[in-house]
Amino acid sequence: MNSTGQVRKIIHVDMDAFYASVEQRDNPDLCGKPIAVGGAGARGVLTTASYEARIFGIHSAMPSVTAARRCPNLIFVKPRFEVYREISRQIREIFAEYTSLIEPLSLDEAYLDVTENRKEMPIATEIASDIRARIKAVTGLNASAGISYNKFLAKMASDLNKPNGQAVITPKNGPAFVEGLAVKKFHGVGPATAEKMHRLGIETGADLKTKSLQFLSQHFGKSGSYFYGIARGIDERQVRSDRVRKSVGAEDTFIQDIDDIELAGDELKPLADKVWDYCKSSGITAKTVTVKVKYSDFTQATRSKTNALPFADGRDVLRTATDLLATVYPFKLSVRLLGVTLSTLTRATRDGAGGERSQLDFNL
């Protein structure tokens, strides 16, 4: 319930195979075919795959060579993040027609609290249908949605009727739904946590519900209270429209290992540009930059620098990242991957007087 005692109405909207669907929309020759967005080659990794490809067991984060082996006719498409960001902006404008309580999780999914909404629509399932229809009309893309009284169940519901569908989990049905669910399918339970739960005899939500808060806190630390709640269909987390990511990162695995510092510096530039572009489009900046170097033997080194003032522009980020890269040269081995991450994120604003940038730090 919210502060006024109303049962909350939460919608989780999730675009269907977002990047792949954009590519199929923009290139009709790809429609109905198995495509993968991401790098091809020996070291490529998939960002996402179309539903035609998923039939073959292909999924995001899968190595490209594995995907190609599973589906010899798989078509690899290079990602176009600037296009995806623009479409994501359009989608968020649609969300804003209904509510100001929007919590983006990524470019292709978000939570919306529509308990009180700008359309004054009383039924959340109708709002979800409306939003999905608006997204289709504006972008030509399909979205799925989950509707429930808390964030955890809304997230779980959005997967129930994918693609291009929606599902609702009511307060009456919520606890029973969780009890029948395998813990490995819980949002927020990764493979390592699921394995630990299995070792403790916890296979389903019903098993989880039998464990005391003390037991769960002892074995899972701060997450124990969260698991105790969701086992009972309870999740009090609010939809946070002011949510700011803790970090923004990008990395690239090279087709051939790199030994030369100048060549490595050239590869660093698009990574720095990518993370800064995200910050710029999101109205944020950062004080810390971290460079990750992974060597041919899979060992890695990281170097970070935190400034007293936030970065002013992308050139500032690149200069600092380049200086950090120089601290690990000569490389101990050839380099197979580079990464750039920005953290200590802050909201970037401009005052009305002289156009100077002022900063509002967020507690993260």
Score class of each variant (00 low, 15 high):
Tyr278Ser: 10
Arg232Glu: 01
Ser334Lys: 13
Asp313Val: 03
Gln6Pro: 14
Gly249Tyr: 08
Asn142Tyr: 09
Leu105Arg: 01
Phe220Tyr: 12
Gly5Phe: 11
Ser50Asn: 08
Val289Ile: 15
Ile91His: 05
Ser334Phe: 13
Ala264Leu: 03
Glu236Ser: 11
Val289Glu: 12
Ile202Asp: 07
Gln359Ser: 08
Arg315Cys: 08
Ala143Leu: 12
Phe95Ser: 04
Leu263His: 05
Thr322Ala: 09
Ala286Gly: 11
Pro79Tyr: 11
Thr306Lys: 14
Ala157His: 05
Asp16Ser: 05
Tyr329Ala: 06
Ala167Tyr: 14
Leu216Gln: 02
Glu267Phe: 13
Lys292Met: 06
Lys33Val: 09
Val317Arg: 09
Val77Pro: 07
Lys209Ile: 07
Gly283Val: 07
Pro72Ser: 11
Ser106Met: 03
Arg118Phe: 10
Gly146His: 05
Phe220Met: 10
Lys119His: 08
Thr290Gly: 09
Ser241Asp: 01
Gly146Phe: 07
Glu236Ile: 07
Lys294Val: 13
Thr299Met: 07
Pro34Gly: 05
Thr4Trp: 06
Thr99Leu: 12
Arg245Thr: 09
Arg80Ala: 07
Ala250Tyr: 02
Lys9Phe: 01
Glu23His: 08
Gly355Asn: 10
Pro175Asn: 12
Gln166Asn: 04
Arg350Val: 15
Asp207Tyr: 05
Ser21Ile: 04
Leu268Val: 12
Lys274Glu: 15
